[in-house]
Structure formats: structure tokens, C-alpha cells
């Protein structure tokens, strides 16, 4: 039982996974909301209605959402090198992780914003609210449960993306499971890595659910 498991390696890989997902989630939350807002507000009948902007952002989002992550990470190697100045370690996975998941999250943000009651926006306008008020006091707070449950789904997707980050030597549990577990035929390593990833996913989902329920006063 578990004789092949090197716990020190396992712990390091766990930290790498948590680090990659954690940092990527923070950036994704920011960029996803930014893209989602532009996507939504530039659409028909909204504050910044603008066909050109809308189609550019929509194309960007659709492309990066549909490219399989494993291909995205390879495609982005030159970009990553330029941004991060390195192709080593967990940091090398971040640009691809953030771009791939921001595109995914942007759509969820857009859907959440679309659900905001038009009447409430109209009420805000009737009170003399400007665009900044409408975005920061109406759209974002009123769609917060959708934004939080959306980032939870995205975070879980991110954790599974990090498993593929091993391709470029970024480490993490997926990498460990593949190299030490699969390639050396140590099933116990694979199982332990899988269990740890599942635990992380459960915890993230649990936190997301609790948060969503707490925020939602509808």
C-alpha cells in the first residue's frame, strides 16, 4: 500500500496545483468580469451599444473558449515567455490558465448581467445615476450570486486545466500523476493525486455554494 508515494513530492505538487489555481482564479475573476462587462454592455440596447467592439470581444472569447486547453498552452508558449520571462515552474502555466478561463468566465458573467432586472436599471436611471453608478451599484451587486457561482464553476475548470500544465513542465498534481504514477506504473501515486485533487474540488465547490447562498437575498 502506497509504497511508491513520495509524500514530499506529493505535498509540493499539491502546493503547485493550489498556487496555480489560486493565482489564476484571482486574475480570472478580474479579467472575466471586465470582458463580460464589455461583452454585455456593448450588446444591443445596452449602455455602450457598439457592434464592432462587441464582435471583437465575442470573437476573442469564443476562440479562446473553444481551443482545447492543451493546445492553447502550446500556442501561447511564445507569449508566456514574453510576459513571464520564463518557461519554468508553475508561473509558466499562468498566462494560458488565465486566458483560457477568463474567456470561459466572461460568458458566465455576461449571462449573469443579462439576468439583472431591467426595471431596476431603469429605476437607477430615473434617479439620475450615471454609468459608473449603474455598473458598480446596480449591475455588479445585483448579479453577484451569478458571478460567484460562475467563478466557482470556472475555478473547478481551472483545477482540471492545471493538470494539463505538466506538458510544459509547470508541475502540479496532474503532472505528478502522469509522470510518477502512469509512466512508472505506480498506480498508488495516481490514486493519491486523484484523491487530493478531488478534495480540493469539493472544498472549492463547498466554499462557492456557501458564499452564493449567503449573498443571494432574493
Amino acid at each position: 500500500m502506497l509504497e511508491n508515494v513520495d509524500w514530499e513530492n506529493m505535498l509540493e505538487a499539491t502546493w503547485e496545483t493550489i498556487y496555480m489555481s489560486g493565482v489564476a482564479i484571482l486574475f480570472t475573476f478580474f479579467f472575466g468580469i471586465l470582458l463580460g462587462l464589455i461583452l454585455f454592455l456593448s450588446s444591443k440596447g445596452q449602455l455602450w451599444e457598439n457592434k464592432v467592439t462587441n464582435s471583437i470581444v465575442a470573437t476573442f472569447v469564443n476562440v479562446f473558449r473553444s481551443v482545447p486547453f492543451i493546445i492553447l498552452i502550446i500556442l501561447l508558449i511564445p507569449f508566456t515567455n514574453w510576459v513571464m520571462g520564463t518557461m519554468l515552474g508553475p508561473n509558466a502555466a499562468l498566462p494560458a490558465l488565465v486566458i483560457g478561463s477568463s474567456a470561459f468566465y466572461a460568458r458566465l458573467v455576461e449571462i449573469g448581467l443579462r439576468e439583472v432586472d431591467k426595471g431596476v436599471v431603469e429605476a437607477a436611471r430615473s434617479m439620475g445615476a450615471n454609468q459608473r453608478h449603474i455598473i458598480f451599484k446596480v449591475f455588479l451587486p445585483e448579479s453577484m450570486p451569478a458571478l460567484v457561482s460562475g467563478i466557482t464553476v470556472t475555478a473547478i475548470l481551472l483545477i482540471s486545466y492545471t493538470a494539463m500544465a505538466g506538458v510544459i513542465g509547470a508541475g502540479g498534481l496532474g503532472d505528478l500523476a502522469f509522470r510518477d504514477g502512469f509512466q512508472r506504473n505506480s498506480t498508488d501515486v495516481t490514486i493519491v493525486a486523484t484523491v487530493i485533487i478531488s478534495v480540493i474540488v469539493f472544498i472549492v465547490q463547498g466554499i462557492g455554494d456557501v458564499l452564493t447562498r449567503k449573498i443571494d437575498k432574493r
Partner: peptide, 28 residues
């Protein structure tokens, strides 16, 4: 701000308390 409006479906912000809903136009 001098021509205010009330609505059939009230159009309150569900994310804000009664106090904070009433404070909204004052914040604006």
C-alpha cells in the same frame, strides 16, 4: 433627481436592505 418615479413592480435592488435602497439616490 428632482423628478422621481415609482413603479408597478417596485424595482428595488434585492441586494440592498431597505435602508440601503433608500440611500441609493442619496449616494447618486
Amino acid at each position: 433627481q428632482e423628478i422621481s418615479m415609482i413603479f408597478q413592480h417596485f424595482n428595488l435592488l434585492w441586494s440592498r436592505t431597505v435602508h440601503d435602497n433608500i440611500a441609493f439616490p442619496l449616494e447618486v
